[in-house]
Simulated scan of single mutants.
Amino acid sequence: MTEQHTITELDDENTALAYEAMRELRPHLTSEDDFVSAVRVQRKEGYRLIASLDSAGRVAAVAGFRHMTNLYAGSHLYIDDVSTLPSARKQGHAGALLRWVDEEARRLDCAGVHLDSGTHRHDAHRLYLSSGYVIPALHFSKTF
């Protein structure tokens, strides 16, 4: 299947269009206004938001990422979020978003792309592995 996907970057004016798709991944975002405000704060830290549109021009999937530089990976894009509406799954939207991020990383002369994924997200893991990602480490966290 070589379906064409339209990928667009969302700005402050149209961030709200991503809310329903993002809420699939981030259910704690209980209102569109809170989501838009949170994205606005993250944009100050370099967060960018892209969307894959369905054939009617509606947001079917979204990805949020940022350009980072650190000692272990050098310059890279870090994907914070990838989420697809249930009705749009298995249609290639998330894969198209990942390919767009790959191209953006190359354009920015990054060494690669990194992401973390919840251990229960098996379908996402299959997509990441089939898209060339590897599992080089475990992620540890501590909450307070």
Rank of each mutant, 00 (worst) to 15 (best):
T2F: 10
Y72R: 13
T119L: 14
R89N: 04
G46E: 04
R126F: 01
C110V: 09
L29P: 03
D11Y: 08
A56T: 12
S141Q: 10
T119F: 14
H76G: 07
C110P: 07
L108N: 09
Y47T: 11
L25M: 12
Y133W: 03
E20Y: 07
M1D: 08
N14E: 08
V113D: 09
D11Q: 09
G46M: 08
D54A: 07
I50D: 02
Q4N: 08
L138G: 08
F140T: 00
T30Y: 03
T2A: 12
R126D: 13
R99M: 10
S87L: 08
S131E: 08
R48M: 09
E103L: 12
Y133M: 10
L129G: 03
Y19S: 03
V82T: 11
V39K: 00
T6S: 14
Q42D: 12
R99E: 13
V113L: 05
A137K: 12
P136C: 03
A63M: 04
P136I: 02
G92Y: 11
D81H: 08
A16R: 14
R106V: 13
A111E: 13
G118E: 13
Q4T: 13
S141C: 09
V101R: 06
V101T: 06
G112M: 06
A38Y: 11
F65K: 04
P136R: 03
G95L: 00
T8H: 08
R23K: 13
S55N: 12
T84E: 07
E104Q: 15
R40D: 08
A94F: 01
A63Q: 02
K44G: 10
D12W: 01
T2E: 11
N70Q: 06
L17H: 13
E13L: 10
T143D: 14
Y47A: 12
A88L: 09
F65L: 06
K142M: 11
A137F: 09
L98R: 01
R66F: 09
L85D: 06
A16S: 14
V101Y: 01
F65Q: 03
T119M: 14
G118A: 15
R121C: 06
L138D: 11
D54P: 01
G95W: 06
L129V: 07
V101G: 01
R121V: 02
E104S: 09
S130M: 01
V101I: 15
A63K: 06
N70C: 09
G118Y: 13
T6H: 11
L49Q: 01
H139I: 06
L53C: 04
G57S: 06
S83I: 00
E3P: 02
L97H: 02
I50V: 11
G132M: 01
S31N: 01
Q91M: 15
